[in-house]
């Protein structure tokens, strides 16, 4: 949908983004991960056209720019307006025909469960309601690209789950979404594409399926440390991706296929196996590796 090529952005002497290249695929939910100050909000503002890149280009893959709905990371809203007044103004700005403004506003309110609070002043709303108002304004006008900067920031666990559910529904409806979060489980659950930013650079990008299925590994744990040199040498000789640490044997990638042989060798040598675990890499491990 959008192609970002070699984009750099500086704020005076601070490099917010440094030679970043990303393609945002249509219909995907792109998760932006990174520590504070990694450049996530700058990237959102660049895509939204709020700021301009110092270098590089941001272009739509097809001819026309997609319509964009943007929710910033802060819960900034005009507090003096009622919820429905705010959304009706957004609808007016989105060029929705006057006759449809009320209907579409109510539809957006219904989607975020705020229909009954439509007449409430925004200034009196809780954080959770403000997040939902933010999401409702994004939905008005049916934009093709939704930019959600920390959509569940400040929400309680129930509110976070609720927000995730709504994002998943939007994905099912075919929307392209770019969202950021510090909650790894949110990104794992909601996103189909993963980008990890750190110090203004992209340290990792992959589809979520690929990211979480690569580097499978297994762990074999014995009841006592492996001190027999003959045995450890024999195990090491099987594959370079085998690692022994105390009473634990780690097998990575293709070395995983050797787990039966290793188990047989251990049992033959009189070691009791107390734990065998086979798993894929987690997002936490990918993140820790990327931002290290």
């Amino acid at each position: 949908m959008i192609d970002i090529r070699n984009v750099s952005k500086n704020y005076y002497n601070l490099k917010a983004l440094d030679n970043v290249s990303i393609t945002i695929p249509a219909g995907e939910v792109v998760g932006l991960l990174g520590p504070n100050g990694a450049g996530k909000t700058t990237l959102f503002k660049l895509i939204a056209g709020i700021i301009n890149p110092d270098k590089g280009s941001i272009r739509p893959i097809h001819e026309n720019w997609p319509s964009i709905g943007y929710k910033s990371d802060r819960l900034l809203l005009p507090n003096h307006l009622k919820i429905h007044q705010y959304l009706e103004t957004v609808a007016g700005i989105s060029n929705i025909h006057r006759s449809k403004i009320k209907y579409l506003t109510q539809q957006a309110l219904a989607k975020v469960d705020l229909l009954e609070s439509a007449n409430k002043k925004i200034g009196t709303c809780s954080k959770g309601m403000r997040q939902r108002i933010g999401l409702a304004q994004v939905l008005i006008g049916n934009p093709q690209l939704l930019l959600l900067d920390e959509p569940s920031n400040g929400l309680d666990p129930e509110g976070q789950q609720d927000m995730l559910k709504r994002i998943q529904e939007l994905h099912t409806a075919g929307k392209t979404i770019v969202m950021s979060s510090h909650q790894l489980h949110e990104i794992t659950q909601a996103c189909t594409y993963l980008i990890i930013l750190n110090r203004g650079q992209i340290h990792y990008q992959n589809s979520m399926v690929n990211a979480l299925t690569i580097s499978p590994h297994a762990l074999i744990e014995t009841e006592r440390p492996l001190v027999d040199p003959m045995l450890t040498t024999a195990i090491y000789a099987l594959h370079p991706d085998v690692k022994i640490e105390g009473n634990k044997i780690y097998l990575q990638n293709e070395a995983m296929n050797l787990r039966r042989d290793i188990l047989a060798m251990l049992l033959r040598s009189g070691y009791d196996v107390i734990h065998v675990e086979q798993k894929h890499i987690t997002l936490a491990e990918i993140y820790a590796e990327a931002v290290r």
Partner: peptide, 9 residues
């Protein structure tokens, strides 16, 4: 800043 979402539309 509360009007950013408006201006980008």
């Amino acid at each position: 800043a509360e009007l950013y979402p408006w201006i980008i539309r």
